[in-house]
């Protein structure tokens, strides 16, 4: 545990844990509403923010936060008002964001593509004191939203039309989800990088749902996986000279593969338990009943 003696490792581990918590916490709602790749889109838009930060000599983290929030709100507006080709509008937003980032950073006197790379793929060992402060504040916001409003966000992400009839402020909640996702992207930017951030939002959730039946359990397991892989990846990168962002993402995918392999026997055991609990519901062999039930009436 000698890595704990170094201040840069303490900062890196703190940042990694916060990303491990926040990325799956908001990612689960994106997966639930089948917008799993929204995080990826916001990541592209955030690149313009990083470029602008260098160009205007501002903090790239805060600039990326502002620009990705604007981008996320714009995506949400396209979803409301966009008629048929919403996907085309989103594609322009994504690639415009990426091109803008490359353009601005090359216009900046101090910037080069080398700086951009540390944001694209993460640069955990260079996380500064002020980065940690920003990450802590933003992570607190994400946790507050995703846990405090979990019932409302669940309802809106499960069935938007129904949520409207329960009187929930659907548009405000959708905007809040988009903004929270944007904030999470910038939290995760220094740890796994903008191009890999979506993996931490989606893959832990996908891995968790191999084992779970409820939303609450999926949430808990996804966050646990997120924390385990971000810590594991950071520590691995300390001992072996490997990039932490890529290590974390590969560990997450490894967790998904392992849990998927474990899930098949678990599902079989559950099916057997269900069969013993409701013996009539799922007979092992087909039998033709002597009498006809209402369900046997088939329309012709």
């Amino acid at each position: 545990m000698d890595f704990l003696d170094y201040a840069f490792m303490q900062r890196a581990l703190l940042a990694a844990v916060l990303v491990g918590i926040t990325a799956p916490a908001i990612g689960i709602y994106l997966v639930q509403r089948r917008q799993a790749l929204m995080g990826d889109g916001i990541g592209h838009v955030a690149m313009t923010g990083v470029g602008l930060g260098f160009l205007l000599s501002w903090s790239p983290v805060w600039m990326a936060t502002i620009v990705s929030i604007l981008g996320a709100v714009l995506m949400e507006l396209i979803r409301w008002f966009g008629r048929t080709r919403g996907d085309i509008a989103l594609a322009m937003l994504f690639y415009g964001g990426m091109a803008g980032g490359v353009m601005f950073i090359n216009l900046a006197p101090t910037g080069s593509n080398a700086n951009l790379t540390s944001y694209l793929f993460g640069s955990l060992s260079t996380v500064s004191e002020s980065d940690v402060t920003a990450i802590c504040v933003l992570a607190a916001f994400v946790v507050l939203v995703t846990l405090g409003l979990r019932r409302q966000l669940f309802a809106v992400s499960q069935d938007e039309e129904f949520a409207r009839v329960t009187g929930l402020p659907v548009r405000a909640l959708n905007l809040l989800t988009a903004i929270t996702a944007a904030v999470t992207v910038t939290v995760a930017m220094r740890v796994v990088g903008l191009l890999l951030v979506s993996a931490l939002m989606v893959v832990p959730v996908a891995a968790a749902q191999q084992l779970t039946r409820s939303f609450a359990a999926t949430f808990a397991v996804a966050v646990a996986i997120g924390v385990a892989v971000t810590l594991g990846g950071t520590i691995t990168s300390y001992y072996q000279d490997v990039p932490p962002g890529a290590t974390i993402v590969l560990l997450t995918i490894g967790a998904f593969v392992v849990l998927t392999a474990l899930a098949a026997p678990l599902a079989r055991r559950r099916a057997r338990a269900l069969a013993t609990a409701h013996p009539a519901g799922d007979p092992a062999e087909c039998a033709i009943p002597a009498t006809r039930a209402a369900g046997d009436e088939v329309g012709v």
Partner: peptide
């Protein structure tokens, strides 16, 4: 009644009580 993430019957029905 399913979304992109597993949810129990109770969890789905509970959304109807939010009003």
């Amino acid at each position: 009644a399913a979304g992109g993430v597993p949810a129990t019957v109770t969890e789905v029905v509970s959304s109807g009580r939010l009003s």
